[in-house]
Computed example of a mutant assay.
Amino acid sequence: MNRMFVCNCFGITEEQVKKHADDGACTPRQIASACKAGTDCGSCVRRIQALLGRGACPTRELVKDGNPAVALASDAELPEAA
């Protein structure tokens, strides 16, 4: 099995980021809340953004449907990444 690491600081793989995205994490901050990726050196944040940009995101669909308040509310409850 060939693992592609996204976050070397915490050993987070592409598959783990994709799983968190499938579970509803649609922003790097939400991924950080789920698994800490992007919260240490920060070098993986752009890679996380790229991975999130490739998949469908329920929150993005809400914004497209004309309800950005719902999408923003889901992000507002998350703690700040360190």
Results as ranks from 00 to 15, higher is better:
I12F: 11
V17M: 13
S43Y: 10
V6M: 12
M4S: 14
A69D: 08
R3H: 13
A82K: 12
Q49L: 08
N8V: 12
T59P: 01
A32I: 04
N2G: 07
C9E: 15
K64S: 09
D23M: 08
P58Y: 05
G55T: 02
M4L: 13
L52P: 01
N2Q: 09
G53P: 05
Q16S: 13
N67F: 00
Q16N: 09
L51T: 01
G11R: 15
N2M: 14
A34S: 11
R46V: 10
S74E: 06
N67H: 02
P79A: 15
G11Q: 15
F10I: 10
K19Y: 04
E15L: 13
C7G: 11
G38Y: 01
T27W: 05
A21Y: 07
R47F: 14
D22I: 09
A34I: 07
I12N: 05
E80K: 12
G66C: 07
S43R: 15
A69L: 09
S33A: 12
T39I: 06
L72E: 09
R60V: 02
A56S: 09
S74G: 06
D23W: 02
G66Y: 10
V45S: 08
D40H: 15
F10K: 13
T39W: 14
A71Y: 05
H20P: 05
D75G: 04
A71R: 09
A71L: 07
D40G: 11
A56C: 06
G11I: 12
C57R: 00
T27Y: 03
T39Y: 12
F5D: 15
G55Q: 05
D75A: 12
P68E: 07
C26I: 01
A50P: 01
E77R: 08
D23R: 06
E80V: 00
R60P: 00
P28D: 06
K18H: 06
A25G: 03
V70C: 02
C7I: 10
C35A: 03
V45Y: 06
N8G: 15
A73H: 03
G11A: 14
D75L: 13
Q49W: 05
Q30R: 04
D65G: 09
D23G: 03
M4V: 10
D40T: 04
K64M: 04
D65R: 13
A81Q: 11
P68W: 12
